[in-house]
Every structure is written in C-alpha cells, then in structure tokens.
Amino acid sequence: MALSRDEIREGMSDILEEVAGVNPDDVADEKSFTDDLDVDSLAMVEVVVAAEEKFGVKIPDDQVANLKTVGDAVSYIEKG
C-alpha cells in the first residue's frame, strides 16, 4: 500500500535528523532544505541516497536541484 504524505514526511524527518542533524520539530512542507534547514549540497546527496533506500524510489542527480523544500521531496516520493 502506498505511503501517505504524513508517513513520507515522517520518514524524511528521520533521515534529515540522522544525516544532517536537523531537529524533527523544524521539518514541515514549506521548509527549504538549504535556507531553513541548513542542509548543504553534499548533505542533500546523503539525504537523497537515504531516501532512495528507504522509499525504494530513484532520484537522479538532475532532479535533486528541483527538490527545494521538504514538500517538493514528499511529492516526488509520493509519485514514486
């Protein structure tokens, strides 16, 4: 069964905490990885790789630049 947006966001929150030390309380759809959560370009790769493993999706490098906010990433994973 497909995961809900809330479940995906929760999974992303775990990844962000583990990979980039982001406080789970700060994670919300409108938050920008770079500007709000202080996730730099290399940490973003680590987040993407962890998300690929966790959710079984492919996120190519040329798509990573389009994932500006947590909501962007949740929507991309939701579409699978």
């Binding site: 290399l42 973003m44 790769v45 993407v48 790789v49 490098d61 990573v64």
Partner: peptide
Amino acid sequence: QAGQTVFRWATT
C-alpha cells in the same frame, strides 16, 4: 566537476 554526482558515486 559536478560535485554532487562525484560525491554520490564515491560514497555509494
């Protein structure tokens, strides 16, 4: 160099 691509290749 394409930093993110190199980083992903190297670390995975």
